[in-house]
Computed example of a mutant assay.
Amino acid sequence: MSDQPISRELALRIGLAARHLPDTEPARLLRVLAELVGLPPSEEKLATLRVKEFRSAADGEFNDADTGALKRAVACLRGEEGVEESGLPASEPYAEGDMPVSIRVACASNGGELLDGHFGSCRRFLVYQVSAAEVRLVDVRGVGAAPADADKNDWRAGLIDDCHVLFVASIGGPAAAKVVKREIHPIKRPDGGNARERMEQLRDVIAGSPPPWLAKAMGQDAEARVRFEREAEEA
């Protein structure tokens, strides 16, 4: 078993999952996870868990468990339910046209108002409307399990297909291609941070000389985009 520590978030998921299984301590559950995803488990690996494989792992360790209990345990491990958290931000009122010349931005998040999620495993998307003068959180979109017959990356991209930009802590190449195909511009921020602060930084860029791709997303005409590009080069 690996000596690498498990994050507090994953330890909480494992503890909650164990409660759904009969006569199961976290150590017993870890033995099963070791065979399924290796140790230490990661968010990306746990996101791939399926009930059928979970039931049969480790010589059928949980073969006699109730199917409903297995489903709830797997949902906890995947971060889809059961993890209580405080500080989840509330969305702010917004109607189309409230913020002229603005863009919509999704931030991959796992807790609070943080930009801390991997595209393929984040628990929710925080959706902001951003203009040169204002930042407004207009939606908080939970991410559950994709349909069994769906491409997971494309399905996740579909949850934010009204957005122009996506901020993530990390994203793989195939997933980024799915996002770009929906005309969403992905931006990686490995250092994460407070999502609203990131949006305020973007607001300042919009208020100054936005790059051509951002000006296009804002609906600026070609002449204006050329001017933005020229001013940026001269700056």
Rank of each mutant, 00 (worst) to 15 (best):
D59K: 09
W213P: 01
R225I: 08
G158S: 03
V168L: 09
K178L: 11
L159M: 09
D139A: 10
L114F: 07
R189A: 08
E223M: 12
R156Q: 10
A148G: 10
A232D: 12
R123T: 11
D139Y: 05
C163W: 00
V180A: 15
R124V: 11
A207L: 04
C76H: 08
V51I: 15
H118R: 09
V205N: 02
A148V: 13
A224M: 10
L39K: 02
P26H: 09
V127F: 06
A27E: 14
M199Q: 03
D59G: 12
S86L: 12
S131K: 04
L36G: 01
A169Y: 00
A11D: 14
I103W: 03
T48M: 09
E80R: 13
L166H: 03
P100V: 12
S56G: 09
E113W: 03
E223Y: 05
E113G: 08
G60V: 13
G117Q: 06
S102Y: 10
F167K: 02
I160P: 00
L12P: 01
R136C: 09
S170C: 10
D64R: 13
R156S: 04
G172A: 14
R189W: 02
A146Y: 12
V74L: 02
R123Q: 13
D116F: 13
A57L: 11
S209R: 09
E231D: 13
E84K: 10
E223I: 12
D221E: 11
S56H: 14
A145K: 15
D154M: 04
G15P: 05
R203Q: 15
S131R: 06
E35H: 03
S170N: 13
K216E: 08
S56T: 15
G60S: 11
E200L: 12
L202G: 02
I14K: 00
R182E: 14
E80H: 15
G82M: 06
G117N: 09
A224N: 11
S86D: 15
S131C: 08
A75I: 01
E53Q: 15
A175Y: 02
Q220W: 05
R19P: 00
M99T: 12
V226A: 07
T48V: 05
E134I: 03
R141P: 08
V101Q: 13
S170P: 04
E84Y: 05
V74H: 00
F62W: 11
